[in-house]
Amino acid sequence: MDLYFWVFASMSVLAGLFTIAARDALPSAMGLLTVFIALASLYLHLHAPLLAIFQVAIYAGAILILIVFVMMLLMAPGERLSAIQANVSYRGSGALLGLCLIGLVAVGTKGVSNIVSMKGVPEGFGNPSMFGDLFFRDFLLHFEVVSVLLLVALIGGIYLCKKKL
């Protein structure tokens, strides 16, 4: 069980590193795809099979494809990505911010597992029916709001993509 975590955790970290470091656009997207799939595998381990499938279907199957589609539209196949930010302050602050975040959280969460002990999950945890129960009962308002958000995004996307604004 531990091995499972380590394999996919290291996979996701390496792929994430590749995503932000790659010189080519499409390989970078492939790195992100690997991250998504590794995380989906971790979700399976965390009793969230439905989310794992959604992760693949929505993130990898829709969102990333959309990004890749735009990539194919806007860039030429041989095109290399420009190097990192020229602005040193951005570059420095970015690196600093990221590294600090990693370090801080890692240090800060030391011993968290002692605080939140792992309870056994109940039978049927994470399966579609339970998910649906919660989703359409307790979170119905949120659901509706999100659907409106999606509608707005849809209309906005279509409007912004018009030839003449």
Partner: peptide
């Protein structure tokens, strides 16, 4: 759902 998810991978 698995089929849907896997099916969408083929496009890559």
């Amino acid at each position: 759902l698995f089929i849907l998810a896997i099916g969408s991978m083929g496009v890559y």
